[in-house]
């Protein structure tokens, strides 16, 4: 579960655009996957199967959320922190990232999150999303460009190129 958690979360976040909801749906999807394990005919395809469950449940949750006027109480509450300043800064950056991600298409979000958050290669992303590797590269470049325009250099700390 630890091995696949971040990829599952990235997919949920790409669909939902909200970190808290993405975590809830990710956890729910793991439970669902265990319950439906008998339906998995090819164990070597577990990752793709799991991510499809996450994708479907995220879309269902998104439709459900649109119909609701209030959000449910979050099951995960932030514990008291020893560094409230850093937490506030982190929360601000998280909000800015979520907002900027919201400007992208779903497929752009999924590509950029799987690549830059989870570290997948274009080959894996292309296989998971059933697109070509070239298309995956295009989505990644477009997503990064849009995020940088939206966020500016001040909020973004860039890693060295892979």
């Amino acid at each position: 579960m630890r091995h696949h958690y971040r990829a599952a979360y990235a997919v949920a976040l790409a669909v939902l655009g909200n970190a808290m909801d993405a975590e809830d749906v990710t956890q729910d999807s793991f439970v669902r996957a265990v319950e439906r394990m008998d339906e998995l005919r090819e164990p070597e395809r577990f990752k793709g199967w799991l991510l499809q469950i996450v994708r479907n449940r995220s879309r269902n949750y998104r439709s459900y959320r649109r119909l609701r006027t209030t959000r449910p109480l979050d099951t995960v509450t932030a514990a008291g922190s020893e560094n409230p300043g850093a937490d506030a800064e982190r929360a601000e950056l998280r909000g800015a990232l979520e907002s900027a991600l919201g400007e992208l298409s779903e497929v752009q979000r999924e590509v950029v999150l799987l690549h830059d958050l989870e570290g997948w290669k274009h080959r894996e992303i292309a296989q998971s999303l059933e697109i070509s590797e070239g298309m995956s590269r295009q989505h990644l470049m477009a997503a990064r460009r849009a995020l940088r325009e939206r966020l500016g250099g001040g909020l973004l700390k860039e890693y060295s190129n892979d």
């Binding site: 958690y5 971040r6 970190a19 975590e23 995960v76 950056l93 973004l156």
Partner: peptide, 22 residues
């Protein structure tokens, strides 16, 4: 556009204790 975006603020595993709780 060839450099990674830092998504660590959104990384659910960044806080090890909280991730273990999950």
């Amino acid at each position: 556009t060839d450099e990674r975006i830092d998504f660590s603020a959104l990384d659910p595993t960044a806080d090890g204790d909280r991730f273990e709780e999950k």
